[in-house]
Design a protein around this nucleic acid. Structure first.
Lengths: 215, 215
DNA sequence: TAGATTGTTAATCGATTAACAATC
DNA sequence: TAGATTGTTAATCGATTAACAATC
């Protein structure tokens, strides 16, 4: 597996390809072409081949790709060939939702600890997890070798939560709070903002209304 | 407000600027420079000015931008100057979570109807919303002039749900199911995949381990 | 006026696409 | 072999950045 600068968009698409391949595999389909994948996920065939080319040669000229093999390759590339333990901070509505969300487990992500400093939440049970105070974080991280933290606290507490995660040696953070947080260079940080995509929709609906009204 | 091809990344950043400006406004700060915004949200000052330039001239040379004004401009551009009614299909864990999520309301999005075809879910109460059967969708869309639908059903039901939304004249769809769905050209569609960003993190952590092991 | 910061142009950078030789 | 599809190069396209004139 080559190791060079891969566009983040490529990694995102790889994740989509991976899911598509899983579906084909479940259907019992054994071979796909870049064109099939492209059509299935809504990109160009050249894009599919180029994305894969960052990581190696997985196909057979004149034939296409073996579904099961390519599926496993993409999963391996994305790090989905083994389980990941997640630490989650914030036992509010969003935190609760993320804990009960089955999509994470399906991709090999397991939330192994939920933390909150709100006394009214500590001790509560979320499925088979008990909400712990933040002090218990190091212990759980150690126990499950967790490397990734998920922030599901209100915006005003997001930065301090990130700081604690960094102090506790987590290496990557997924932030659901709609606020910019700062972490040292060596920490991987990504934000998921649940309403940004909605705002893109409303932006586009707005553009559309303008066009109509100007006719 | 000019109407030209605006990069989607610009719209996404605009949403981030908007939130940052709201925060400054709450703090009572009245003026910002592109450099301040850039530092606050982690982009370059040129990027900030360029993004704003798609929509007009909002600043004063030598001075900067008026926080309150720019905040309102960005909100208006994003369509956040008025409320949007959302229809949600899928009353499972994710659907429940989205209904109880306060972040939507904070940005002017109100879920006005929750639908599911699962008999065990119909009639249930999610906060002040009752889960209705899908047949009731046209009525609710009409009543609240909803234009946007949110898909929170399992992947296998996502396409049919989208089809129903299209048939019911919704104009935009936000899809939380991790599957590619097809809609007519004139429908705005965006996907939110809760684990894609996690996979980018695991991809990067994987790259890192490789580097370390190759030392 | 001097200092600061915008708005905008031109240069750079990077990603996507088209095209085709390689090859099954 | 003929047909098909990959892997890869070169061309295109688009977005970001640097730089600076405009101007408060």
């Amino acid at each position: 597996m080559k190791s060079l600068r891969v566009p983040e968009a490529t990694v995102t698409r790889l994740s989509v390809y991976s899911r598509f391949l899983e579906r084909l595999d479940r259907k019992g389909i054994t071979t796909v072409s870049s064109g099939d994948i492209a059509e299935g996920v809504g990109v160009s065939p050249a894009q599919v081949r180029k994305d894969l080319a960052y990581f190696g040669e997985f196909g057979t000229r004149g034939v296409g790709y073996n579904v099961k093999d390519l599926m496993r390759y993409t999963q391996k590339i994305l790090g989905l060939d083994h389980n990941w333990s997640l630490i989650l901070v914030g036992a509010g509505n969003l935190g609760y939702a993320l804990c009960t969300h089955k999509g994470f487990n399906a991709r090999g992500f397991t939330i192994v600890g939920v933390f909150d400093n709100d006394l009214s939440k500590i001790g509560k049970q979320i499925q088979d997890l008990e909400v712990y105070p933040l002090e218990k974080m190091p212990e759980i991280i150690e126990k499950y070798s967790a490397r990734i933290g998920v922030i599901a606290v209100p915006s005003r507490n997001a930065q301090e939560t990130a700081d604690i995660m960094v102090k506790n040696k987590l290496e990557a953070i997924l932030n659901f709070a709609p606020v910019t947080i700062n972490v040292p260079e060596h920490i991987e940080l990504r934000n998921v903002d649940l309403s940004v995509k909605l705002e893109i929709l409303t932006f586009n609906l707005g553009l559309r209304s303008e066009k109509n009204s100007s006719i």
